[in-house]
């Protein structure tokens, strides 16, 4: 049969000669190979002290965005929850009351917005589904924790800092600074 690739190697089935059966040469060859690895560059990095830069498309923890005036953009349309393949997102909608215009950008807002990080697969479909650019995945990797409950991120955990009140923190969260 014609080989499909040139990587296939024909197996040699002729019996080994005496020298080959001694294996001495092959053992030496193997030893040399392992020995040469001593001088190879170590791919390991000392993690906590040193970190690798994330790739630009890295998808980390979710962030609920605010607009320039510090209002929440989410309108609790539920498209993100619908798009989520792992069904990690749950939300509860509420109507904006009078006097809350500076808090919510639209008339409807998410009273409760939770992402279960144990379920989330960080695929980014929610981000794509959102019509209001309200949710996006940051570059922060999900931190370890001891309890399951702590992996269910509440709205307070997800909301980005208010740019009007804490411009420094906002900038940092945006990764702009």
């Amino acid at each position: 049969m014609q080989a499909l690739t040139n990587r296939a190697k024909v197996v040699d089935r002729k019996p080994m000669t005496f020298i080959e059966r001694l294996y001495l040469w092959n053992i030496l060859k193997g030893m040399f190979i392992t020995f040469s690895h001593i001088f190879k560059k170590r791919p390991t990095i000392n993690y906590p002290e040193k970190k690798r830069p994330f790739s630009p498309v890295f998808r980390g923890l979710h962030v609920l965005n605010r607009d320039e005036e510090g209002r929440e953009r989410c309108t609790a349309c539920g498209l993100c929850a619908l798009a989520c393949p792992a069904e990690a997102i749950t939300m509860e909608a509420a109507e904006r009351k009078i006097g809350e215009e500076h808090l919510y950008r639209e008339e409807k807002y998410a009273a409760r917005y939770e992402v279960n990080m144990l379920r989330c697969i960080f695929c980014g479909l929610c981000e794509e589904a959102c019509p209001k650019d309200a949710v996006y995945l940051s570059e922060t990797p999900a931190p370890p924790n001891f309890t399951r409950e702590s992996f269910i991120y509440k709205k307070e955990d997800l909301l980005i800092p208010d740019p009007t009140k804490e411009p420094e923190a906002f900038k940092k969260a945006k990764g702009l600074s």
């Binding site: 392992t34 560059k41 170590r42």
Partner: peptide
């Protein structure tokens, strides 16, 4: 070393 690791540090 032989496995391109660092070992105990």
């Amino acid at each position: 070393l032989l496995q391109d690791r660092r070992g105990p540090t």
